[in-house]
Design a protein around this nucleic acid. Sequence first.
DNA 1: TCACCTTATGAATATGATTCATAATTTTGA
DNA 2: TCAAAATTATGAATCATATTCATAAGGTGA
Lengths: 301, 301
Amino acid sequence: MFIETRHLATLRAIKETGSFSKAAEKMHLTQSALSHQIKSIEHYFSVDVLNRNAKGITFTPSGEQLLELAEYVLPKIAATETLLNRVSLGEVGRLHIAIECHACFEWLMPVLEEFKEHWPEVEVDIRLGLSFQSLAALKQGDVDLVISSDPTTKSDLSFLPLFDYESLLVLHHQDPLSKKSYIQAKDLAGVTLITYPVKTERMDVFQNFLNPAHVHPKEIRQVESTKVILLLVASGRGVAALPNWVVAESLNHSKLFTKSLGKQGLHKTLYAAVRHNQQDLDYVKAFIRLAANAGNNIVRK
Amino acid sequence: MFIETRHLATLRAIKETGSFSKAAEKMHLTQSALSHQIKSIEHYFSVDVLNRNAKGITFTPSGEQLLELAEYVLPKIAATETLLNRVSLGEVGRLHIAIECHACFEWLMPVLEEFKEHWPEVEVDIRLGLSFQSLAALKQGDVDLVISSDPTTKSDLSFLPLFDYESLLVLHHQDPLSKKSYIQAKDLAGVTLITYPVKTERMDVFQNFLNPAHVHPKEIRQVESTKVILLLVASGRGVAALPNWVVAESLNHSKLFTKSLGKQGLHKTLYAAVRHNQQDLDYVKAFIRLAANAGNNIVRK
DNA sequence: TCACCTTATGAATATGATTCATAATTTTGA
DNA sequence: TCAAAATTATGAATCATATTCATAAGGTGA
């Protein structure tokens, strides 16, 4: 493949201006450069491209072909280049989000709605990142942002804090445990614990509360939806450990009660993990700002 | 405009092979070259183009954009390049012919019919090249071949002989002049000369026969069509000077008679003028061969 | 962990695009 | 028709940059 963008741009400029010298000026090159360029095409293909005549320059049929090619190719290239520039400015792009916690849907959905309004040219998508290694996917570029509460020091990734929350035990208001000022691990040995359908090693209650104390709940019941979990708890079928932002909304009008897990409570921070080189993109920063606000607002209720 | 064909070809090869090293091999470049190339794009636009991961390479959204551009652009460039190559081989092209003599239509039309059959990809056109400077037009590339009987030594132009012919005086078989063994200039002083509608200085009879003898015909009558000229002569309205190839066909079945102009006769050669750098194109040579044959055949009758 | 494979990187080199200076050609205006 | 002005062509010199070379760095899989 011999023809380069450069050649086509030159041809187009010559067509537009009608002369080498004017085209050269327009392109910030010398007339000589253009002459050499055209000659190299003509020499390479053994074909005349331009008729340099008395009054002005005309295109041979071959020249017309090249010109047609230029008209076809150059605008598309220009369009792609401006698109790439906008991508680098963070005006357009892709924000595929993986969330590691079921409960995050609660605050994430409204955030995304607002985000989409302000960044219509960013392609948004969410995946529940439990079944796969979301941080690996992030590194590989399969997703662009991971909502996680377990920052690790992976190279190329940045963990940006969104907001703090507390994992609370949600129980029926007549549950005997509701008398206690806080919950101890051993208190949960005899209960039915309702959780999302996730491996226990990926849940805070186990990782940071039950496992260290070597306690196992009597029964574990896995349920997909947050609503149903709260419903089951409200009807006395068991207890659940949920982030405070989930409970905040449903507490007033129900038979639900919450208790801290442990004397200090089980406090965590939610992070947005992004690839290092994307953390300064406008739309990424905007998303993180929106998410942090949303989280803080709902948690403080 | 930063992106060059080269970049796009590299991107495409990487997509096809899935790795830098295989793509490099395919392109007869080193892996390093491709790495530098991609890096330069990524650096120029401050955008990631490829995710170089554990298992293989994937394209970022920006990379996909570039790839799409490549798929759009590269085939078209390749097509144009093969077209240009075919042009230089003389397989395709343009053959716009200017003829300086009305009478040439007689043999040219069938020649063109045959030519078109063999060279369907050559765009053929004819113009009567009397009103304009056909050789200048040829030089400028407005036409590609001029049929002329007046070779000049213009730079860049080649005059290739087609066939010899004789300009004959056509007259009514009862015309007194038909008794003579040949026509002298003064014989035409009293006749009505029927010609094509062309300036006298562009006609052989005047240039090479009448003018040198300072003879003027009694009357000049200009007629467009060869058929009508012959009709008029056949009905005794005058005489005409026409190339022998025109007369050859209509002589048998009519009241027409021909005589040589001057003792030696007025002999000329018809040439095809082409731009020097096109004279070796296959289709040009083919046309000239066809034209020469046609002319010789018709003249020898 | 060590081979092994792939990409990245910096310096050196080679390629080739552009400029410079000027020639050649043509046009234009007296 | 001649000189002046303008245009393209050309060869050599220069400069830019694409490519290579040699090697590092990073990751995978036995």
